[in-house]
């Protein structure tokens, strides 16, 4: 199966790989997995007191599409408010990366990851 240029670009030059301090009150951590393919994804956001996502990091063990999906999401959420970030849908990710149907679940995983990170952040802040 051929990967799109955008997937290859994110795979070869992943943006924002790494971690944020998960004990920081302003950091939300999302951990999701897809037993179907054995992929695991950690996505973290650091939010300013105004509710703007100022930094995002990810670590993904999985295929190229899963890595590209999470890399793209970290780029997209930076500078957005948490509520804006919640509007990111897996379709947007899949479309942007031109994912084939068999790889749509990778974009679903990335959407789940950002949601989980925001939920974790809100829980910490008592907003959940």
């Amino acid at each position: 199966m051929a990967y799109s240029d955008k997937v290859i670009d994110h795979y070869e030059n992943p943006r924002n790989v790494g971690s944020l301090d998960k004990s920081d009150a302003n950091v939300g951590t999302g951990l999701v997995g897809a037993p179907a393919c054995g992929d695991v994804m950690r996505l973290q956001i650091r939010v300013t007191d105004d509710g703007v996502i100022e930094d995002a990091r990810f670590k993904t063990y999985g295929c190229g599409s899963a890595i590209a999906s999470s890399s793209l999401v970290t780029e997209w959420v930076k500078g957005r408010t948490v509520d804006e970030a919640l509007t990111i849908k897996n379709n947007d990710i899949a479309q942007h990366l031109a994912l084939p149907p068999v790889k749509i679940h990778c974009s679903v995983l990335a959407e789940d990851a950002i949601r989980a990170a925001i939920e974790d952040y809100k829980r910490k802040k008592g907003l959940g």
Partner: peptide, 16 residues
């Protein structure tokens, strides 16, 4: 999708 097995964050953290 729907019937996906959900793994606990603690386990996923361990795997990472």
């Amino acid at each position: 999708g729907e019937g996906r097995v959900q793994l606990s964050p603690a386990f996923l953290m361990e795997i990472i």
